[in-house]
């Protein structure tokens, strides 16, 4: 099939970018969206031009490297799917497809479709851990049974891949879903109790410092999260935060 691609090109963080038009023929249904971009890049390279830069690594929907705003939707039209897992059979012959980077103040563009998401790492560094050293004589893993339901809920929250779709989809560029997923995981586990309060305070504080916006409960983040992370986590984090602030 043939596509009219409208792709954001930007040399570096200081330059101004703009949308470029590419006509691409010979796209196959079995290609993933990123393979379609590979295909375009191969064509550009054969013409001696610079390829379109985009982030990617695992191409299995798990590393969280890939991003892209496709026709105005983070990770494109298929729900619960990362861009690397999106296949061209979801598009029509002759369709016009807009491809842009994830946009947010806290995600500056590095080049073309690549953005800087290191703000996410800094939120995690502020408190997303349990302070336990590797000693080799930690207590046996089965000493504390954890109710299956809590373990499963903690797991569900922990499946966040840190791609940033929640931020890109939110009109306020809020990072609440991302931050709350981690806060929830630890608050649901017995191991996470000791640092429960300092964790939520520090992480939320860092989130604000990075310039992410406030949450106004639009739910866009959950709708466009490729891993279906639930907004229940945000409610849980709000509770945790309130409790911790009161106790402070």
């Amino acid at each position: 099939m043939k596509l009219n691609l409208k792709i954001w090109r930007q040399k570096n963080k200081d330059s101004k970018g703009k949308v470029h038009d590419y006509e691409l023929d010979g796209v196959e249904e079995d290609m993933s969206f990123l393979e379609m971009l590979d295909f375009l890049n191969n064509k550009l390279l054969n013409e001696g031009q610079e390829p379109v830069a985009f982030d990617h690594d695992c191409r299995e929907g798990i590393c969280g490297s890939c991003s892209l705003f496709i026709n105005g939707v983070a990770h494109g039209p298929e729900r619960g799917t990362t861009t690397c897992q999106l296949h061209m059979r979801k598009f029509k012959d002759g369709e016009t497809v807009y491809v842009e980077p994830f946009r947010a103040k806290a995600f500056p563009v590095i080049k073309d479709l690549i953005v800087d998401r290191s703000s996410f790492d800094r939120i995690q560094q502020a408190g997303a851990y349990i302070s336990v050293n590797t000693s080799g004589n930690t207590q046996d893993a089965n000493t504390i049974p954890i109710p299956k339901h809590n373990a499963d809920e903690a797991f569900n929250a922990a499946t966040c891949i840190g791609c940033g779709a929640c931020v890109a989809s939110c009109k306020n560029s809020s990072a609440m879903l991302f931050t709350s997923a981690k806060v929830s995981q630890f608050s649901l586990l017995p191991q996470g109790q000791v640092e429960r309060e300092s964790r939520v305070l520090n992480m939320v504080n860092q989130m604000d410092l990075e310039g992410f916006g406030a949450c106004t409960n639009t739910g866009a983040c959950e709708a466009q999260c490729p891993k279906g992370i639930s907004v229940k986590n945000i409610a849980r984090m709000n509770r945790e935060y309130l409790l911790a602030s009161v106790k402070k």
């Binding site: 893993a141 299956k148 630890f186 191991q191």
Partner: peptide, 24 residues
């Protein structure tokens, strides 16, 4: 050392699958 790994990971909050009795 394989057994230490599981202890360490659980202590860090790795949510391994559990059965209905709450054990791994």
């Amino acid at each position: 050392v394989s057994t230490n790994i599981i202890d360490q990971c659980v202590a860090q909050g790795v949510p391994f699958a559990r059965d209905y009795g709450g054990l791994l």
